[in-house]
Design a protein around this nucleic acid. Structure first.
Lengths: 121, 121
DNA sequence: GTACTAAGTCAGAATAATCTGCGTACTTGA
DNA sequence: TCAAGTACGCAGATTATTCTGACTTAGTAC
C-alpha cells in the first residue's frame, strides 16, 4: 500500500477492506490527534497567524483556559503537528507554529470545508 | 463563500482568516460527528459492507458493546450520515448503510489516509 | 518594596463518555 | 418447556476530559 494511490484505487481498496489492517488504520490516529474540544481551533489559529504566542492564542480562542491551552498544545507538540520555540527572556516569550506535518493537514481541512459547505446548513 | 473553491483559493482564505466566521466553522461540526471511540470504525465497516446488520457490525468491531454500538449508530443517524431500515419480521432485522452525505466523506478519508501513510510510521 | 508581565503549573471539582451486566419482545426448533 | 436468535434499552459504576481558581518565576518600572 503506497501513499500515492489515486482516489479510485483508494475506493477500490476500501471496498475490498484492505485499507484498514485491523488496528493498523491510517485514519484513526489522525482522528485521535484532532480529538478534544479545542484542537481544531488551535490549528486554525496557527494556520492564519504563524508564528503566534501563547497569550495571543488564548485571546484568539474565546473561552479557553490556561490549563486547556497548555495541555492541548503539549499534545499537538507530542504528535508532531506543532513546534514550540522558547526565547529565554524576561518576561518569557514562546512562539508556536505548525510543523510540515501539521501544514500537511490543510488538504484534509480543504475537503472537510467543501463537505461542510455542501452538507451543513 | 462557495463550495467549489479551489485548494489555492481555500488556502488564501484560510490565511486571510475568513474561512471560519467565529463559531460558524465548516470543519468543527464534522469533527464533532466523528468524535467518539467507535465512529470511524463504524463508518469504515459501512463502507465495505453495504448494507450491514446490527449483529454483523458488532462482530466486525472488536470490543464494542451493544450499548455503544446502539448509541453511536443513533448519533450517526441523527447527523444524517447513516440510514436505518427496519424489517418487521420475527426475529427482527435491521439494516444500516451510509447515506449520500455519509458517502461524501470518502474524499476526506482518502486525504487522511494519504496523510497517514506519509506521516504515521 | 509593591505591582506587573508572560507562560505556564497544580490540586481538586464538575461534567461527559464509556463500560458492565441484566432485562425486553417474540418465535422457531429440540 | 427451554434455549437460541435478534436488536436493542436501562441503571449504575468507572474512567476520561474539562474547568476553577490559586500559585510560580524573575526581572523591570514605579
Amino acid at each position: 500500500m503506497n501513499k500515492d494511490m489515486t482516489y479510485e484505487e483508494y475506493v477500490e481498496k476500501v471496498k475490498q477492506g484492505i485499507v484498514t489492517d485491523k488496528g493498523n488504520c491510517p485514519v484513526t490516529p489522525l482522528l485521535l490527534m484532532l480529538q478534544g474540544k479545542w484542537k481544531s481551533q488551535i490549528i486554525y489559529e496557527l494556520c492564519i497567524h504563524d508564528p503566534i504566542r501563547f497569550g495571543e492564542l488564548r485571546k484568539a480562542i474565546e473561552g479557553i483556559t490556561n490549563t486547556m491551552l497548555t495541555s492541548s498544545l503539549r499534545e499537538l507538540e507530542d504528535d508532531g503537528l506543532v513546534s514550540r520555540i522558547q526565547f529565554n527572556e524576561i518576561p518569557p516569550h514562546v512562539e508556536y507554529s505548525l510543523t510540515e506535518k501539521g501544514k500537511a493537514l490543510l488538504p484534509i481541512f480543504y475537503e472537510m470545508t467543501k463537505w461542510g459547505f455542501k452538507y451543513i446548513p
